[in-house]
Amino acid sequence: MDMCGEVILVTGGASGIGAATCRLLAAAGASVVVADCNEARAKGVAAELPDAMSLVVDVSDAGDCERMIAAIAERYGKLDGAFNNAGITEVSVLNGAPMPESHALPLDVWRKVLNVDLDGVFFCLRAELPLMLKSGGGAIVNTTSLQAHISYPRTAAYTAAKHGVLGLTKAIAKEYGEQGIRCNSVSPGVVDTPLTNGVIHAPEYRDMLLAPIPLKRFATPEDIARAVLWLLSDQADYINGATIMADGGYLA
């Protein structure tokens, strides 16, 4: 894929799916903006890539998202694509503590997950869209999840947030398609990333999570990144408001 001359933003770009996507975008010729709350890791990924910049952003802060886009406009003058990928889970907020039942989920955990995973996507979109309109259009991909379609016990916050992102993706696709902006989402299945590694390889979960996957393996970050690259590219220029199930056949 030839993405030379395009400027693409990746949030959550410092590790996992985000970092893999940054590397594929750069290999396709894009100028990549690596945005993450972890400054050191974001700088590390950007340092690997030609004509890349790193930005520190807390996507749950609308002002931070506005400042992120202002920095992109200052350096590149445009924005052709965005991968709104930053996210967390209840497990990451609880720092490995046992997952409570939903009626006992601390309200601060609920709020934190919704702030990052749903509000954060909207705050990014709200900041990105004006610069994309000024740039003459573009492509957006939001990270949803297998849990935008189904759920697991004790994941109420994450499930609610990802269902919300799925609806938000459709709303943006409907509203901005006529103005040359496509908005789609990718729904990863079980991906082996730093965010999930401690859970999916735990003896009590591994076999249960592998059983419904016909391919009998967990996804790699690169598996998901290739789907994102396609959705951002001109090869997907008639795909709008869609969700790519990158789940190895889990929901089949």
Score class of each variant (00 low, 15 high):
residue 100 P to Q: 13
residue 145 S to W: 06
residue 179 Q to D: 00
residue 145 S to R: 00
residue 168 L to N: 05
residue 75 R to C: 05
residue 68 M to G: 11
residue 144 T to N: 02
residue 59 V to Y: 06
residue 94 L to Y: 05
residue 65 C to N: 12
residue 150 I to W: 15
residue 156 A to L: 14
residue 129 L to W: 00
residue 129 L to H: 03
residue 62 A to M: 08
residue 102 S to K: 09
residue 175 E to N: 08
residue 72 I to Q: 02
residue 87 G to D: 00
residue 101 E to L: 15
residue 185 S to P: 07
residue 103 H to P: 14
residue 134 K to Y: 12
residue 69 I to F: 10
residue 84 N to H: 10
residue 148 A to D: 13
residue 139 A to K: 01
residue 72 I to K: 09
residue 112 K to M: 07
residue 58 D to Y: 03
residue 114 L to D: 04
residue 160 A to P: 00
residue 187 S to I: 11
residue 136 G to F: 02
residue 143 T to G: 15
residue 140 I to V: 13
residue 184 N to A: 15
residue 121 V to K: 00
residue 159 T to K: 01
residue 175 E to A: 01
residue 78 K to S: 08
residue 135 S to L: 04
residue 79 L to N: 02
residue 179 Q to Y: 03
residue 184 N to W: 05
residue 148 A to Q: 00
residue 112 K to T: 06
residue 94 L to G: 02
residue 93 V to K: 08
residue 127 A to P: 03
residue 117 D to N: 06
residue 162 K to Q: 07
residue 70 A to R: 15
residue 101 E to A: 15
residue 160 A to W: 05
residue 112 K to W: 09
residue 88 I to W: 05
residue 123 F to C: 12
residue 174 K to T: 10
residue 161 A to W: 04
residue 184 N to K: 12
residue 138 G to L: 03
residue 106 P to A: 11
residue 167 G to D: 01
residue 113 V to G: 03
residue 64 D to P: 10
residue 81 G to D: 15
residue 85 N to Q: 13
residue 188 P to N: 15
residue 115 N to T: 14
residue 164 G to S: 07
residue 115 N to H: 02
residue 185 S to F: 07
residue 89 T to N: 12
residue 182 R to L: 09
residue 152 Y to I: 12
residue 89 T to H: 02
residue 88 I to V: 11
residue 170 K to F: 14
residue 86 A to R: 11
residue 125 L to F: 07
residue 113 V to H: 08
residue 129 L to M: 01
residue 156 A to C: 12
residue 83 F to I: 13
residue 182 R to D: 05
residue 111 R to L: 06
residue 168 L to P: 01
residue 188 P to S: 04
